[in-house]
Every structure is written in C-alpha cells, then in structure tokens.
Amino acid sequence: MTSSPTLIFKRPDAMSENVTHYCPGCTHGVIHRLVAESLDELGLRDRAVGVAPVGCSVLIYNYFNVDFLEAPHGRAPALATGFKRVRPDMIVFTYQGDGDLASIGMGEIVHAANRGEKFTTIFVNNAIYGMTGGQMAPTTMPNQRTTTSPAGRDVNKAGFPIRMSEMLSTLKTPSYIARVGVFTPMHIINAKKAIKKAFRLQMEGKCFSMVEVLSTCPTNWGINPIESTKWVKTDMEPYFPLGVFSDPERGDD
C-alpha cells in the first residue's frame, strides 16, 4: 500500500486557471477566492450565475468557472433581479465596486435590497475609481487626494463618503448586511464567514444579502501594498466600521 500525499490546499473548483490582471497589492484576488471557496463549500458552483460590474473587476468572469453576465455600469442588481425572478432555483450574485454600486448604481441596489431580492451582492469598497484612473468615488475619504480631487475631497462640495451598509440596513425589509475587511489573515477568515453566510441565506431563500469588503488600491492611492493595508485600518475602518448591520437570524429586523 502506497501512501498518497494529502491535499491540504488547492485552487477552488469555482476559480479558473487564468492569471488575474489586478495590480500588485490589490485585494480583489483575495475576495474572488473567498467567493469561490464559499460556492465550492456550499456545493453551488454548477447552479451559480455571477453578474460582473463595470470597474476593475469587469473581467471577473475570466477568473471563475461559473456562468456570468456582464452588466452595464451600476445595473448589476437589476440584472440579478431579472435572472433570479425567472430562475429562483439558481444562485445569483453580483460583484460590484464602489463607483458601480454607490454612485451610478445607487438606485438599483437600494430597490433590489428593498424588494428583498434573494441574491447576494459582494460590494468591494476601496474608496476610489480604479479602472478609470483614480477618480473620486462616493466612498472617497474626506481630504483624500484623487485625480478629480487633487487637493483632497472637499466635503463641503462633494459631501461625506457614503456608508452603504448602514444606509441599506435602515430598510425595513429583512436582509443580511455586513462589512468586513481583508487586510489581516484574521479579517480574511471573518470575511469568508460573512460571504459564506450570505450565500447560505440565499440558498435557504431567506433574504437579500450584501457583504461590503474594505479593499485596497495601492496604484491609485499612490502608496505601497503594505502601507495600503495599514491605511484601510487607520483611515477607512474608523469611518467604515466593520460588523453586521442587519441579520435575519439575529431577530433585529
């Protein structure tokens, strides 16, 4: 009898072998993996449909072994609504950045959440427009420099960063809404738990679910990857506190 080596780590089945185009230090790759692992572990890969956004993760469908739809900017929640309503037996998720979800797609996400559409949204908040070259986002921090706020975000003119999770959790309709980070291993473990729970709730037909993930953009922030993870902790987290804002299993809705 020969002993075969024990497999302790592998690429999730839901991920493809393509190499991502993301910049060094960007945490999109980590978040992709957490989504893929969740789909694998819940056995959902072969009945899942993802909806891609416009933004850095526009090509997300290249990195997954999952059927995908490519949405117009901000409209992913509407596409997900349409698909899920005619195929309630399938598992539908959107993957959106902050420009996509909190700016141009504000209407779609609010109404999808309010109707209690039974799909899952992964909301990646890195406080900037990445793909278009580092412009100010609705989540850009006060005084943060971007290519359209070179002197820093002026809250008197641009307002304060929008806290999407808090805002959506004010809706009366039951939902699961959590904000997580991926800037330390411990945070990654917690983020995975939240994402998996969001998919499980969809599986059970319970409610709309959204996990907001604080992410990085070393390229457009103009700092190195290590500084970037620190900046999420020191500058973003105090304004965007981590936690569960709405949970149908907590009985607070």
Partner: peptide, 26 residues
C-alpha cells in the same frame, strides 16, 4: 408568471437583460 414593477425604466431594461440570459421569454 413573473411580474415586477421596477424602480425606473433603466432598471426595467436591465432586469430584462438578466432575465433574458436565463433563456426564458421576457
């Protein structure tokens, strides 16, 4: 059947987009 009153015509169009990709007639 499925009846959804959307929040806007922009959303309507995109709901159709998603629903059509399922192969059903919308």
């Amino acid at each position: 059947g499925v009846f959804v009153q959307a929040e806007s015509e922009v959303a309507v169009g995109n709901m159709l987009f998603g629903a059509s990709a399922s192969g059903k007639r919308v």
